[in-house]
C-alpha cells in the first residue's frame, strides 16, 4: 500500500516536473548559443526531456495498480464497511 501511495505521488509529480522543464523560465536556460556533439543544446535538451518523460512513465506505470485490481480493492473496502 505504501509503495502504491508513493507511485501515485510520483505519477502526480512527473507531469508537473515535465511541464516545468519545458516552460519558461527553465527552458530559457538551455536556449543559448551552444551545442552538444554538433546538435544545438536546446534541441538536445528538448529530446532529452521528452525521452526522460517516456522512460519515467514506463517505469512508473509498473508501480501503479491495474484497473481490475483497483476495482477488486474497492469492492473489498465497500464490503468491509459495516
Amino acid at each position: 500500500m505504501a509503495s502504491r501511495k508513493r507511485s501515485e505521488g510520483f505519477a502526480f509529480f512527473l507531469p508537473v516536473v515535465g511541464a516545468m522543464l519545458v516552460m519558461p523560465p527553465i527552458v530559457m536556460l538551455f536556449d543559448v548559443d551552444a551545442d552538444v556533439f554538433g546538435i544545438p543544446l536546446i534541441v538536445a535538451y528538448m529530446f532529452a526531456v521528452w525521452l526522460f518523460l517516456v522512460v519515467a512513465s514506463l517505469v512508473l506505470t509498473r508501480g501503479l495498480p491495474r484497473a481490475g485490481a483497483d476495482q477488486a480493492e474497492l469492492e473489498k473496502k465497500t464490503v468491509d464497511k459495516p
Binding site: 519558461p24 527552458v27 536556449d31 548559443d33 546538435i39 544545438p40
Partner: peptide, 30 residues
C-alpha cells in the same frame, strides 16, 4: 548527419541557437 545539418541551420535561416521563442506563444500552444 545531424551535426553537419545543424551547422548549416544559420545559413538556412532557422534559428536553433539562442532562439528566444519561449514566450507566451510557446506556453499557449502547449
Amino acid at each position: 548527419g545531424f551535426a553537419e545539418i545543424f551547422s548549416r541551420a544559420e545559413a538556412a535561416g532557422v534559428n536553433v541557437y539562442d532562439n528566444g521563442g519561449f514566450g507566451t506563444r510557446w506556453v499557449t500552444i502547449m
